[in-house]
């Protein structure tokens, strides 16, 4: 892995480009479903021009702070994610770092829900926190399984361990659980109760103008960071024929992101009480069995 100082400058624009592409793809799918002409990203312009809505006795510091924390954490989450052979910082604990930054979303959603001093956002913020462990535990075990297979928490080592066989081949359960838990951690469809229509728009209900844009951008960036991390953890990083490493990373990340966006449209929002039970009784034991299998393989080798 090559660490370069300009990698840190390049990371935010690359993530934003992926987020914009994902949002554009999403709006094209929406338009096709509705039979209307696609106008990707038109709402961005609208939000930039919109005036801020105010609520009585809002805690503006926490309200805005939550949205900003979401964007910052979503970008930092990719600091240890390699693009081909290039990485901003190949931390010795990159996998834990990624998870630590993802978890900031819990605090961010709760803060945005709390800050507006309005009932529906508050309820939705609490809902997300209540779901937190059901999302986080399977996610964490999926991450740990990949680290276990490589015997290292360094993302560079995880990529190197997949030189012969990609981890998705012998850890398919961990990969599937990872794909389910990434949109959950990013409260993206079909896990979007926190920002869902059933509670008047959830934490988004009172957000308007630039604040809303920042928060929604943060959510897209978090989804992109999750999709990008799937590539070094399970899909062999930048390895592939003909194309250079960075190009394979881009192609694979785009494929995972497109899959998540498409799947998010295929399924209706999953009710929290349904998913809670599935997470604890199906996903968590499945990831534990997968981790046990990987441990046995690692010990036997």
């Amino acid at each position: 892995m090559v660490e370069t100082w300009w990698g840190g400058l390049l990371l935010p624009p690359v993530l934003v480009a992926f987020a914009v592409a994902g949002a554009a793809f999403d709006s094209v799918l929406t338009a096709r479903a509705a039979g209307a002409p696609a106008r990707p990203l038109r709402s961005v312009v609208g939000l930039l021009a919109q005036r801020r809505r105010r609520t009585a006795a809002a805690d503006a510091l926490l309200w805005r702070g939550g949205a900003i924390a979401l964007v910052v954490a979503a970008v930092l989450a990719s600091a240890a994610t390699p693009l081909g052979h290039h990485v901003v910082g190949d931390l010795s604990v990159g996998v834990v770092w990624f998870n630590a930054m993802e978890v900031v979303a819990w605090a961010a959603v709760w803060l945005v829900g709390w800050g507006s001093n309005s009932a529906f956002p508050l309820v939705s913020g609490y809902r997300f926190v209540a779901q937190g462990l059901a999302y986080e535990l399977p996610h964490m075990f999926a991450l740990i399984t990949a680290a276990l297979g490589a015997g290292s928490l360094r993302v560079g080592d995880v990529v190197a361990a997949q030189r012969d066989v990609w981890f998705v081949v012998w850890m398919p359960v961990a990969f599937l659980v990872y794909l389910v838990s990434v949109p959950a951690m990013a409260f993206f469809r079909p896990f979007d109760q926190a920002a869902g229509a059933d509670a008047g728009g959830g934490v988004l209900a009172e957000l308007s103008g630039v604040d809303r844009l920042v928060f929604i951008a943060g959510r897209w960036l978090l989804l992109v960071s999750g999709a990008a991390m799937a590539v070094p953890l399970f899909l062999g990083g930048g390895s592939g024929p003909l194309l250079p490493g960075w190009a394979w990373s881009v192609v694979k990340t785009a494929a995972v992101l497109a899959l998540l966006v498409w799947a998010g449209r295929r399924f209706p929002t999953i009710r929290v009480d349904r998913f809670q039970e599935v997470a604890w009784l199906v996903l968590l034991p499945a990831t534990l069995v997968q981790a046990l299998f990987v441990s046995l393989v690692v010990v036997a080798r």
Binding site: L91, S92, V93, V96, N99, A100, W110, N117, Y126, V129
Partner: peptide
């Protein structure tokens, strides 16, 4: 590195949970 990143991970989770409980127990949370 491990201890430092773990402190961030654990404290974010713990403080979010603590916010829920403290708001629940305080007479004047807001």
């Amino acid at each position: 590195a491990y201890l430092g990143v773990l402190v961030v991970l654990m404290m974010v989770m713990e403080m979010v949970v603590m916010a829920v409980f403290m708001v629940m127990y305080m007479m004047n949370p807001a």
